[in-house]
Nucleic acid binder design. Structure first.
Lengths: 232, 232
DNA sequence: ATTGACGGATTGTTCAACAATCCTCCATTC
DNA sequence: GAATGGAGGATTGTTGAACAATCCGTCAAT
């Protein structure tokens, strides 16, 4: 007869979903979707009164939602002026990629130096296959998502919740950037081959080559994005 | 005749201090000081009503301050239960040091791979000397602060505002941990020699040795802290 | 010892109001 | 014509009170 403690622990994973009952949290979800999907353009000012009446929540609750998104880097809050959809500069893009290099390469390096078999490689593999499947069916938006999952999975190899969180943060900010591309839909497609190759290197245990490939990968993507920022 | 634009830009640095006029921001400052100095112990519940009346601010404003500190990792917010001073587990300590390894070693690595002379080494040198001076005069609290500045300076070598921010975040959380030490005052003192040595390696341009020394340094500090957590 | 119900206390959310600040427009001045 | 200065309206910052929802400890019942 199984004791309760085994599946009680399994329920713990869903607790985060339950805690999302907060009104401010749901409002933040709605706004985040609008921003990451490019419907709310960078620089747009978010009026407390207008949005509050539109969403049917009070100003105070709305401000709490603003704070959540501000922390995620999607909004910026200027005192006595209001909140705006964040507008990222070329320097920000460079900074984000510098951060990515440190986080993702650092995660791989951490795995290498620990000497143990990497935990979480299945998630990386899943992301690679998810991206390839989406590409075959020309679901470009899903290709982009899968690519995010791939890199999120790489960062997770470090086995550090805080590194994962930082990575989520970085990727959320990068979503703001992708909309400046001429064809954001197919931006990620060429990288699928790289993803597959890096996965193979990791599974072979050749972490040094994986790290080097990843660094080149990131330099490449950064260059592509910064050149798209020529005007801005 | 000098144009205005030269010192107008210099004023920009102080704008952050001016913007701190927000009531919630000041409340957060007060609470942060109490927490990092160990007057508010981990696990303590912060009642909205009590604190609100004590500090003379409304509940809504106080909740805003709570959000700020929650984002810094100093408080945790449990839905419908309230906010508590964060209590860090042994796993958290390990996680924080894993993150530090990635950030600090990554910063040095970034410098090495960029090939350019590191910008910001003066700040590191200043932190080292600040610590040695404080130790001579047995100002142990200042030794601790100087040590923080040293590592903050290392992370800043990457030249990335976001990495600096992440590092600030990590160090703020670590302050919660130092209070479990039996003698938190003298905890940092033995590391002054390491700081000096790492600085020397960096100034010599031997980034590889510096990174290795730093990694050992961090492993050592982590072991010392986790063993102090034996009971908890 | 476990379960269930009750009541007090705390948090979540909303609303209305006022103070402080910012933005725009316009008149003034040189 | 460009810079300065001030009135006015609009928006944000902050407060206090109120009510609903939830949690916590207690006590009775099985």
């Amino acid at each position: 007869m199984p004791t309760t403690s085994d599946w009680v622990q399994a329920l713990g994973a869903e607790r985060a979903a339950l805690g999302r009952a907060s009104t401010a949290g749901r409002v933040a979800d709605v706004l985040r979707a609008h921003i990451t999907e490019g419907r709310l353009l960078p620089g747009t000012r978010l009026s407390e009164e207008d949005l509050g009446t539109a969403l049917g929540v009070s100003r105070n609750t709305l401000r709490e939602a603003f704070r959540l998104l501000t922390h995620e880097g999607l909004l910026i809050h200027e005192f006595n002026r209001g909140v705006f959809v964040r507008r990222l500069s070329v320097d920000d893009v460079r900074d984000l990629y510098r951060f990515r290099r440190v986080l993702e390469c650092g995660a791989i390096r951490q795995v290498r130096e620990s000497g143990t078999a990497p935990r979480g490689l299945e998630a990386v593999r899943r992301a690679v296959e998810e991206g390839e499947a989406a590409a075959r069916e020309r679901r470009w938006v899903d290709v982009g998502s899968a690519n995010m999952h791939f890199h999120q999975g790489l960062a997770a190899l470090a086995g550090s919740p805080r590194i994962e969180q930082a990575m989520r943060h970085v990727l959320a900010e990068l979503r703001l950037v992708f909309h400046v591309m001429a064809a954001p839909e197919t931006f990620h497609e060429p990288y699928l081959a790289d993803n597959r190759r890096i996965l193979q290197l990791l599974e072979d245990g050749d972490f040094e080559s994986a790290e080097r490939s990843l660094a080149i990968y990131l330099d490449d993507a950064e260059a592509q994005l910064t050149s798209a920022y020529a005007g801005s």
